[in-house]
Amino acid sequence: MNNNEILLKVENLKVWFEIRKTIISQPLYVKAVDGVNFELKKGETISLVGESGSGKTTLGRTILRLYEPTDGKILFEDKDITNLPFKELNWYRKETGFVQQDPFGALAPHFSVYRILEEPLIINKIGTPESRKEMIIKALEEVKLTPVSDFINKYPHMLSGGQMQRVVIARALIMKPKLIVADEPVSMLDASVRIEILDLLRDIQMNHNMSLIYITHDLATVRAFSDWIFIMYAGNLVERAKTDELLSNPLHPYTKALLSAIPDPDPSNRFKLREVPPGEPPNLINPPEGCRFHPRCSFAMEICKKEEPKEINIAKDHWVKCWLYKEG
């Protein structure tokens, strides 16, 4: 297996949502993803981290072509899939898997866990009823929904939040796709199960040379888990680097603020308020001119208010989009 092969290439990707307040009013655009570039190699994991509402889910869904891109390019194994019509995407659905962010809406309410997991196998004509049953039991064991017999006939409303999340993960893994986008796959799980499930994802991923885009708010788990960290703010990737590099040498002011906001358990925390950057994240319909972080940035300079910084390659495997830094 060639581990340097590029699986996915994203160029200047934009995803804008059109909204109209009333039928006759001018359309407005929510610029949820606004000019994103990166490459993902086979077998690699990217952790995509960032502000709530910065466009992580939109980026993930667009890569899977669950959303239509507005502009830019998506190449999967060198095939341009940017504008393939939905009905020509069946092969791509088989190659990719998606773990949705909100498990409460992700599972068909009138399907049992068994049926939920069998569905993709049936659609893709995989196995016999008996071999499918084996696969399903194995998948449930892998995500620790055990004893399997307690869960296999349950309906989604009979599961806890974290249990639903694991069914969603099992469903994405059962097809052994080449690329998985896992959107907050373990946000409802406690630390112990979380690590186990992430280890599991990591194992399956390595065994099958899968690539993974792991969207998360949990910076504490990314160190052990990913090759790359991408930081997203207001529709842009503001910094991306190899995991150790980013954690030991964060450059973008937003990245620094994010890293320093990670809470440490200490029972005296409850007596004080936390320090956070002032202001709210920007409105993506009319994002701030220049650098989108400038209204909240304590390093902001004149140029930051007027001109958008370019993404520069500051060191090997390290890019940043900020006027504080120069190429090379």
Binding site: V49, G50, E51, S52, Q101, G161, E184, S187, M188, H217, L219, A257, L258, A261, I262, P263, R270, L273, R274, E275, V276, P277, P281
Partner: peptide, 21 residues
């Protein structure tokens, strides 16, 4: 019930501040 588990750490800190106040 899990009021901040879906939020980034900065927003989370903001919400926790709000709940404290």
């Amino acid at each position: 019930d899990e009021p901040t588990s879906a939020l980034d750490v900065i927003t989370q800190a903001n919400i926790l501040n709000l709940l404290k106040v």
